[in-house]
Amino acid sequence: MTERKVAIVTGSATGVGAATALGLARRGYDLLINYSRSESEATASAAACREVGADTLLVRADVADDAACRAMVDAAMARWQRIDALVNNAGVTSFAGASNWDALDTPTFHRIFDVNVIGMFQMVRACVAHLKAANGAIVNVSSTAGSLGIGSSVAYIASKGAINSLTLHLARSLAPAVRVNAVCPGMITTRWFADGLGEANFQKLKAQYEQTTPLARACTAEDVAEAIVWLVDGARTVTGELILLDSGMHLGRTPSVAAAKP
Rank of each mutant, 00 (worst) to 15 (best):
D102L: 10
R125D: 13
A175K: 10
R179C: 08
I118P: 00
V124W: 07
A129N: 12
G119C: 10
A171W: 10
D74I: 03
V139H: 06
V63I: 15
R82N: 08
L57V: 09
T167V: 09
Y156I: 03
A75I: 08
A145K: 01
S165E: 04
L148G: 01
G161E: 02
Q122W: 11
D74V: 00
P176C: 03
V178M: 04
L58S: 14
Q122Y: 11
A137C: 14
A98R: 10
A134D: 03
T144L: 14
G136V: 01
L58R: 13
R70T: 13
S159A: 09
F95P: 06
L57S: 03
I138E: 01
A103L: 08
H130F: 05
A145W: 00
I150G: 00
A158D: 03
A90F: 08
A64D: 03
H169D: 07
A85M: 02
I150E: 05
A68M: 03
A61Y: 15
T56E: 11
L170G: 07
I150Y: 02
V87A: 08
A137H: 14
V115C: 02
A126Y: 07
I83A: 12
N135M: 01
R172H: 14
D102P: 01
I138R: 01
A71C: 06
T56K: 04
L174Y: 14
S142N: 10
M123F: 04
V92Q: 02
D105H: 08
F109P: 02
T93S: 14
H110C: 11
R79M: 08
T108Q: 13
N140Y: 11
P107F: 08
V128H: 05
L148V: 01
Y156M: 02
V87Y: 10
R70G: 10
L168V: 14
T106R: 13
A145L: 04
G161M: 06
V141I: 05
A85V: 00
G119H: 13
P107Y: 03
V117Y: 12
V115Q: 03
V141L: 07
A71H: 12
S165M: 11
A126W: 08
G97Q: 01
A68W: 07
A133Y: 03
V59W: 11
K160T: 04
V115R: 03
S147P: 00
L58G: 14
I83W: 13
V87N: 09
A68H: 05
C69S: 06
N135V: 00
S147Q: 15
G146T: 05
D55E: 15
G149R: 08
D102R: 12
D84S: 05
D66L: 05
A129L: 09
S99D: 15
I83M: 15
V59H: 14
D102M: 07
P176M: 06
T144Q: 13
G161D: 03
A85P: 04
A75S: 14
V73Y: 06
S165L: 01
F95H: 09
S94W: 04
L104W: 07
I118V: 06
